[in-house]
Amino acid sequence: MAKSPTPKPADPPALSRRQQFAQTYQMARKSDPALGRWVFGVGLLGLVVGFGVFWLVVGRSSTLGLILSVVGGLMFGVLSGLIVFSRRAQKAVYGQMEGQVGAAAGALGLLKRGWHVDNAIAFTKQQDVVHRVVGPPGILLVGEGSPGRLRALMTGERKRHERVAVDAPVHEILVGNDEGQIPLAKLSRHVQKMKRQVQPAEITDILARLKAIDASRPVVPMPKGPVPTSMKGMRGQMRGR
Rank of each mutant, 00 (worst) to 15 (best):
G233S: 14
G59H: 01
F76G: 02
S86T: 04
V117P: 01
R239Q: 15
K3W: 09
M234S: 14
I203D: 04
V129W: 00
S4K: 12
E162Q: 15
P223A: 06
D167M: 09
A165K: 05
G52H: 05
P137M: 04
G36F: 02
A107I: 03
H116A: 11
G95C: 01
M194P: 02
V198E: 07
P183Y: 03
R88H: 07
G114A: 07
A185M: 15
G41D: 00
R158P: 06
A22C: 09
A122G: 07
V164L: 14
R196G: 10
T124G: 06
S16R: 11
P218I: 08
V49D: 03
R209W: 09
A89P: 01
P136G: 03
V78P: 02
F85C: 06
R17Q: 12
G106M: 02
V117K: 06
A122S: 14
L140F: 01
D178S: 14
M238C: 08
Q100G: 10
W55N: 10
L45S: 08
G102Y: 00
Q26P: 06
P13N: 08
S146D: 11
G65T: 03
G73H: 00
P183A: 02
Q19N: 08
V142H: 00
K186I: 08
P226F: 08
D167T: 10
G225K: 02
